[in-house]
Structure formats: structure tokens, C-alpha cells
């Protein structure tokens, strides 16, 4: 994982009537494996996909995804 982004996708899925990964995937137009990778934190979605996921839950994007500020992450790449 490149960035320390914490997500609450699994919690929101269960809060939304125990929505399955397959149902969420279909609703936001990606594969189930993509949802699995996002939930595991091994893939950070694009802003567009993050917005679609948040919309599927009826939540704000920052309620579903947030920067984990407990760890580093301020490294600036050099030119």
C-alpha cells in the first residue's frame, strides 16, 4: 500500500442492510475483486470511484475513506 488510507467500506456495507461485496461492486460498476482489494487496503480507489462508493452508502466520502495520520506519509518525492 503506497498511502496510508483507512477505509470503512466493510462497516458501511453491513450498515446498509448487509450489502454483499457483489452488490456493492455492481452498484458502483467494478468487479467484486476490486471491492475486496479496497476493503483489504491493498488498493486505494480513484477519487471518482471513492465518490461512487460513498454515494452507494448515502454517506460522505470522508466518512468512508480517511487519511491515516498516525503513520508517516509526508515524504515528498524528489525531482
Amino acid at each position: 500500500m503506497d498511502e496510508n488510507i483507512h477505509n470503512e467500506v466493510r462497516r458501511h456495507r453491513f450498515a446498509c442492510g448487509e450489502m454483499t461485496q457483489e452488490q456493492l461492486a455492481r452498484r458502483v460498476g467494478v468487479s467484486r475483486q476490486t471491492i475486496i482489494a479496497i476493503e483489504k487496503g491493498s488498493y486505494n480507489p480513484s477519487v471518482a470511484l471513492a465518490l461512487r462508493i460513498a454515494r452507494a452508502f448515502g454517506a460522505r466520502v470522508e466518512d468512508v475513506f480517511r487519511l491515516d495520520e498516525s503513520e508517516g506519509g509526508n515524504d515528498v518525492p524528489r525531482d
Binding site: 460498476g29 467494478v30 468487479s31 475483486q33 476490486t34 482489494a37 488498493y43 480507489p45 480513484s46 470511484l49
Partner: peptide
């Protein structure tokens, strides 16, 4: 026919 994770 591929989503962003598949393309990545």
C-alpha cells in the same frame, strides 16, 4: 471492459 483496479 476493465475497471480501474484491473487496469492498474
Amino acid at each position: 471492459d476493465k475497471d480501474e483496479f484491473q487496469r492498474r
